[in-house]
């Protein structure tokens, strides 16, 4: 589903990714792990299409299509979803407004009519229950005044509502207490299906206790220094990253 070949990327004149190769098949969950500054978040933003993240070499294909040629909104409409490490606050624009606009953008692209407002509300309410978000919060501005944990749950809610096919979750687990972590993991697991793929970007093994990955890639200084099965994550937890970085 997602094929990354020899990916090099640069941010503000600094080379961050220096040749990544891996593929994520439909139905799979891959974890990208690594120490701070290894390029994990850069990879997430390169896939989502953030401006200023310059790809200098390599390719990224999503269902065979050249993802890098598309602006962020078209990637999103194709089914790429980025759960932000630091979700943005947009005062005045309610969560419902954002969700509805996002859903309708997708439908428009697929030649479907706009969603019926009542159906939309029912759908969002239903999804909100899964992540234990009070529907009242949805009429507030996007992430406005949300706590750190609420913002992360809100990212998962958006994912549940929009039903993407490739989910990239950038440090969605960081800063969560154990209850919130469970809620977030349940949300991710609810989305697992043979038609979908997931890329978990994380620093810690903790999340992987709840969301079992098929493959684990360790990123250090812009390279994948090691790939393996779920056991690699446990090894990292026990031994830290030092031994890999030194290698």
């Amino acid at each position: 589903m997602l094929e990354i070949k020899n990916l090099h990327a640069r941010v503000e004149g600094k080379d961050i990714l220096k040749g990544l190769d891996f593929s994520v098949g439909a139905g799979q969950v891959h974890a990208i792990m690594g120490p701070n500054g290894s390029g994990k978040s850069t990879l997430a933003h390169v896939l989502a299409g953030r401006e200023g993240y310059e790809v200098t070499e390599g390719s990224v294909r999503f269902d065979g299509q050249d993802l890098l040629a598309l602006p962020p909104e078209e990637r999103a409409c194709l089914g790429v979803f980025l759960g932000f490490q630091y979700p943005v606050e947009i005062p005045g624009v309610s969560n419902l407004t954002l969700l509805k606009a996002a859903l309708n953008a997708r439908r428009k692209r697929n030649g479907q009519p706009e969603i019926d407002p009542a159906d939309f509300l029912a759908w969002v309410r239903d999804r909100a229950k899964l992540v234990k978000i009070d529907p009242k919060m949805l009429s507030r501005g996007v992430n406005e005044g949300f706590s750190g944990g609420e913002k992360k749950r809100n990212e998962i809610l958006q994912m549940l509502v929009l039903e993407p096919r490739l989910m990239i979750l950038d440090e969605t687990d960081s800063g969560l207490d154990i209850d919130a972590l469970k809620i977030v993991s349940d949300g991710i697991n609810a989305m697992r299906s043979p038609q979908r793929a997931t890329l978990l970007v994380t620093h810690y093994q903790r999340l992987l206790d709840y969301v079992q990955p098929d493959r684990v890639h360790v990123l250090a200084r812009g390279h994948i220094v090691r790939s393996g099965g779920p056991e690699l994550a446990r090894e990292l937890e026990a031994r830290g990253y030092g031994w890999l970085e030194a290698a």
Partner: peptide, 25 residues
């Protein structure tokens, strides 16, 4: 820019995002 990027990453065009933010304002 981060607000616009966030909206675009959700599939909303930049133009619509600007209009949404202005209307919210």
């Amino acid at each position: 820019e981060d607000q616009l990027y966030y909206c675009r990453a959700r599939g909303i065009s930049e133009e619509e995002a600007v209009s949404m933010i202005v209307n919210g304002f």
